[in-house]
C-alpha cells in the first residue's frame, strides 16, 4: 500500500491546490446548503457530506472528464469534484427550472452526462449497477473510459452491490468501486449493519484488488485511486477502494443524531481532512495562509453567486410535470 508520504511527494503544487479548492468548494457548498435548508429555503431533504470531502476530491482527481461516476443520496461532493456546475446544482436543490433537471431531481439525483456524472441516486446501492453498465459500455465500445461508483458502507448490505461486484470481476470491467465507509448506514452504526466491517475482505473474495485507505487523507485517496484507475484503464479489471471517513452531520439535515454522543462528532472534527491538507500545503508547498484564505473567499463568492442565481431562476412549473414522462413523447 502506498504510504501517505509517498503519496504526497507525487503531488505537485498546482494539483495540491486543486485538491484543496475542490474540498473547500464541497465544504462551503454543503455548509451553505445546510444553512439554506435550516432557514426553510430549500424544499425536500438534503444529506450533506461534510467531513468526507477528501474521498470525492481524491478519487475524482484521478479521473478524466470522459470517465463516469455514479453516486448516492450524499452525492453533492462527488458531483462537484467531477466537474458539476454549482449554479445548476444549487438550482436543482432549490427546485428551479434552471437546475440540472428542471428542478425535478432535487438534491439526490443530480446528473450531468457532459462531465460523466451518470447520476446520484436516492436508492442506497442504486447507482452501483449503473456504473457497472457504464463500464460495460466502455468495454464494448473499446473506449478507455473508467467508471467509478461511490457508495457508502450502508450499500454493502444491499444484494445488488454483491451482484455488481461479481459481474464486474466476471467481465473484467473497467470500474472502481469506492466505498465511502463512514461507519453508518443512515442512523445505524456499522457494528449493527455489517457482519464484517472490513469491506475490502468482502470485495477481495470476489477476486478483485481491494485496498483500504484513510479517507480523510486526500493524498492517500488520490494515490490508491490512481492505481485503481490505471488498472481499469489498462484492461486489468475492477478494483475496490475502502475509504474510511467521517460523516460530521446527521444522516439528513434535521437528524437529531440521538444514536451517537456529541464527543464522537468532536473527535471527527479533529480529523478534518481540509485542515490537515492546509497544513500540508503550508509545510510542503509553501502556500501561505493568506493565499488559502483568499481562495476560500473566492469559493464563497462563487457559491454566493450560485445561490443568488438559483433564487432568481423561475420555480419549477407544476404544469410541466407531464413532460418527459416518456422519451418518445418528448422527441
Amino acid at each position: 500500500m502506498t504510504t501517505t508520504r509517498d503519496a504526497r511527494t507525487s503531488i505537485g503544487r498546482d494539483l495540491a491546490l486543486d485538491l484543496y479548492q475542490t474540498m473547500m468548494t464541497i465544504r462551503r457548498f454543503e455548509t451553505i446548503a445546510g444553512e439554506l435548508f435550516a432557514a426553510g429555503r430549500l424544499p425536500g431533504f438534503i444529506h450533506l457530506s461534510i467531513g468526507q470531502e477528501a474521498v470525492a476530491a481524491g478519487v475524482c482527481a484521478a479521473l478524466e472528464d470522459t470517465d463516469y461516476i455514479t453516486t448516492t443520496h450524499r452525492g453533492h461532493g462527488h458531483c462537484i469534484a467531477k466537474g458539476g456546475r454549482v449554479t445548476e446544482m444549487m438550482g436543482e436543490l432549490y427546485g428551479r427550472e434552471g437546475g440540472y433537471a428542471l428542478g425535478r431531481s432535487g438534491s439526490m439525483h443530480i446528473a450531468d452526462n457532459a462531465v460523466g456524472i451518470l447520476g446520484a441516486n436516492a436508492i442506497v446501492g442504486g447507482g452501483i449497477p449503473m456504473a457497472v453498465g457504464g463500464a460495460l459500455a466502455a468495454q464494448l465500445a473499446g473506449h478507455r473510459q473508467v467508471s467509478v461508483s461511490f457508495f457508502g458502507d450502508g450499500a454493502v448490505a444491499e444484494g445488488v452491490a454483491h451482484e455488481c461486484l461479481n459481474l464486474a470481476t466476471l467481465w473484467k470491467l473497467p470500474i472502481v468501486f469506492v466505498c465511502e465507509h463512514n461507519g453508518y448506514a443512515e442512523m445505524t452504526p456499522v457494528s449493527t449493519h455489517l457482519a464484517n466491517p472490513d469491506v475490502t475482505q468482502l470485495a477481495a473474495a470476489y477476486g478483485m484488488n481491494a485496498t483500504a485507505v484513510d479517507g480523510n487523507d486526500v493524498a492517500a485517496v488520490l494515490a490508491v485511486s490512481r492505481e485503481a484507475v490505471a488498472r481499469a484503464r489498462n484492461g486489468g479489471g475492477p478494483s475496490f477502494v475502502q475509504a474510511r471517513t467521517d460523516r460530521w452531520r446527521g444522516h439528513f439535515e434535521g437528524d437529531p443524531q440521538r444514536y451517537r454522543p456529541r464527543e464522537e462528532v468532536q473527535a471527527m472534527t479533529d480529523r478534518d481532512p481540509i485542515a490537515a491538507w492546509r497544513s500540508v500545503l503550508g509545510a510542503e508547498h509553501g502556500v501561505s495562509d493568506d493565499e488559502l484564505d483568499s481562495m476560500d473567499d473566492r469559493i464563497t463568492a462563487e457559491l454566493t453567486s450560485a445561490v443568488e442565481k438559483a433564487e432568481a431562476m423561475p420555480l419549477s412549473d407544476p404544469a410541466g410535470l407531464t413532460r418527459f414522462v416518456y422519451p418518445e413523447a418528448s422527441r
Binding site: 455514479t70 449497477p129 456504473a131 453498465g133 459500455a137 451482484e163
Partner: peptide, 21 residues
C-alpha cells in the same frame, strides 16, 4: 450470458442505455 442476478442485469442495462446502447 449473465449470472442469475436480475437486479444487477437490469441495473447494468440502465448504465448501457445511458451510454447509447
Amino acid at each position: 450470458d449473465s449470472p442469475l442476478a436480475e437486479s444487477g442485469i437490469v441495473g447494468t442495462a440502465v448504465g448501457l442505455a445511458m451510454r447509447g446502447y
